[in-house]
């Protein structure tokens, strides 16, 4: 048998800005690796779908019985379940992306020493970053699709705009994954992950996931409006209820900024972290 190791292709123009040798254009091999690994851990894979569904059933039905109806984004009354479902969709996009890009990446970095093995092949740090983020997105996309199907089953999707909730969920997940990975590159030990919980949990609870912004006093509203998850929830809620307006481009812009900043910092830092 003869060796048929193809030379890595020259990187596309944009990526030539990166340090030489940090990108071999083969991040797809990492997707293959993740898909193969998750075939053995299918239970964990499937379980990610159920968590938001449990929340939807419990909170939508149970808490909903205490609330009745709420004014939707355009003022028209909607059921409590229809109110929180897009919030849960946004939150699960955030949670999945952050978990994958922080805990999982840190574990592979420090304990599995998996990236070390990958870096002794033609793969570079940028291949790894793109591959990991790509997998987080594929996973997040599947969960979002599953959750949207459940919403449809409960009759919570009333507008064709809801179809756009899927790509929107991917944008949100990408943004959180990019920033999460950038943050992970600064982590030194597991102790630092308290800070991740400390950032994620309040966001999950207070970003109008469970009740409208009007509950807060004005100064607190301003704080909440600053949080990324708030923009994700607004985006999703507008799409699934059909209350679409031009201002939603602003929410989208928020995530594009997060993506650009996150990817830039992460790929710089991965170089420092991996190629000592």
């Amino acid at each position: 048998m003869t060796a048929q190791v193809p030379a890595p292709p020259a990187p596309p123009a944009l990526l030539r800005l990166l340090p030489a040798g940090s990108y071999a254009g083969r991040s797809r091999a990492l997707l293959l690796r993740s898909a193969t690994a998750s075939r053995r851990a299918w239970l964990a894979f499937v379980s990610g779908f159920f968590e938001p569904v449990f929340y939807l059933v419990a909170m939508g039905q149970g808490l909903g019985s205490l609330v009745g109806v709420l004014p939707g984004p355009d003022g028209a009354p909607i059921s409590y379940a229809a109110f929180i479902a897009p919030g849960l969709l946004a939150a699960s996009a955030m949670n999945g992306a952050v978990f994958d890009s922080t805990f999982n990446v840190f574990f592979k970095l420090k304990y599995g020493r998996l990236y070390e093995a990958m870096l002794s092949t033609p793969l570079g740090p940028v291949d790894i970053a793109l591959g990991e983020i790509g997998w987080a997105l594929i996973r997040g996309g599947l969960y979002a699709l599953g959750f949207l199907s459940v919403m449809a089953g409960f009759g919570l999707l009333v507008s064709p705009w809801a179809l756009l909730a899927l790509p929107a969920a991917l944008v949100v997940a990408f943004a959180f994954a990019a920033v999460g990975m950038a943050a992970t590159s600064y982590m030194r030990s597991w102790q630092d992950f308290d800070l991740v919980t400390l950032a994620i949990l309040p966001m999950f609870l207070f970003s109008t996931t469970f009740y409208p912004l009007s509950v807060y006093p004005r100064w607190l509203q301003l704080v909440v409006e600053f949080l990324p998850l708030f923009h994700a929830v607004e985006l999703m809620r507008g799409l699934t209820t059909g209350a679409v307006h031009l201002g939603m481009v602003g929410h989208l812009a928020y995530f594009l900024v997060m993506i650009v900043v996150g990817v830039t910092v992460a790929s710089r830092r991965l170089d420092v972290l991996l190629l000592r």
Binding site: L66, V67, F210, Y211, V215
Partner: peptide
């Protein structure tokens, strides 16, 4: 945080409603 979110935040949403 859960107490703040649900006890205070959600609580104020349902305060005074008969169903709660």
């Amino acid at each position: 945080l859960f107490l703040l979110a649900f006890g205070v935040g959600f609580g104020s949403l349902v305060a005074g409603t008969g169903s709660a």
